[in-house]
Write a protein that binds this DNA or RNA. Structure first.
Lengths: 139, 139
DNA sequence: CTAAACTTTGCAATCGCATTGCATCCTTAT
DNA sequence: ATAAGGATGCAATGCGATTGCAAAGTTTAG
């Protein structure tokens, strides 16, 4: 498992430090996208800025993608192994207005979405908001 | 025209003060969505917080809708007269990565978008980013 | 017409998240 | 071993959003 994580970092050309392995581990264990605050909550002793920069590094190397779910805080989720953050890799995200979780809808690819032909499209961000499965069952 | 603006406010049950008429006028003259900063730039003497609250009031009464285009600052655009911000009124937005303009793609309705059936959908935010028509012509 | 009640506006201040600068520590290459 | 480069920690700042409070303006009951 440790080895596995290390290989993941190496495959993205990210130097595998202890901190990065821990952050990657956290991200891979999480069902939902994590904000910097979320991440900080998982590490009593880690510095906020270090976590911030770790996420930035991951993002630059396309290990994670950022999600703007409108809560004010950016969230990050692991990319799939094959992901290159190219148009065909883009997918929708769901944000629960109740539990505030945000997760990837990996099956909702955005590459086939029709776009206005008078614009040069570079990225697409689709966030669906509502109640997640769990929260819609509980009343 | 003044009358017209006043009627618009009244139809949304917003008390038409001088400030609100001016802000509405600004919004209706603008091709693109405006941030609080944008708005502030148009009024030398207006207080930022008053503009902020004016937008909040407009939003509450569904005169404007907010757009999260990922630039960090919320933007606001006028709703159409018939808009009630219900699912069938939702449309996509385009954000130009060059000139930073954001505008409504009113023809891109989101109501017919298929959504995951294990979630209760309340809102959808679709932001397409790239180069707008103008900026893609200029090299 | 006037006083009370409510709304709107302006100013000061605060909060939260993102981001940067800089010094220190650690790792790597020579 | 040593210099060079990268990673980390701490302090500080920037910026947008938001709130509290008092002054000014508006509406309404009497």
């Amino acid at each position: 498992m440790q080895d596995n994580l290390e290989e993941i970092l190496l495959s993205r050309k990210i130097h595998p430090t202890a901190m990065r392995l821990l952050v990657l581990d956290e991200l891979s264990k999480s069902e939902s996208a994590l904000s910097l605050n979320d991440l900080e909550g998982h590490f009593e002793r880690a510095d906020r800025v270090t976590l911030y920069r770790t996420l930035k590094t991951f993002e630059k190397h396309k290990l994670v993608h950022r999600i703007e779910d409108g809560t004010g805080a950016l969230k990050y989720a692991l990319c799939e192994a094959s992901c290159d953050c190219a148009p065909q890799d883009l997918h929708a995200h769901f944000h629960c207005n109740k539990c505030q979780s945000t997760f990837c809808l990996k099956d909702y690819h955005l590459s086939q979405m029709k776009t206005p032909n008078n614009f040069q499209v570079e990225e697409i961000s689709l966030v669906i908001k509502g109640l997640c499965e769990q929260c819609s069952h509980v009343n």
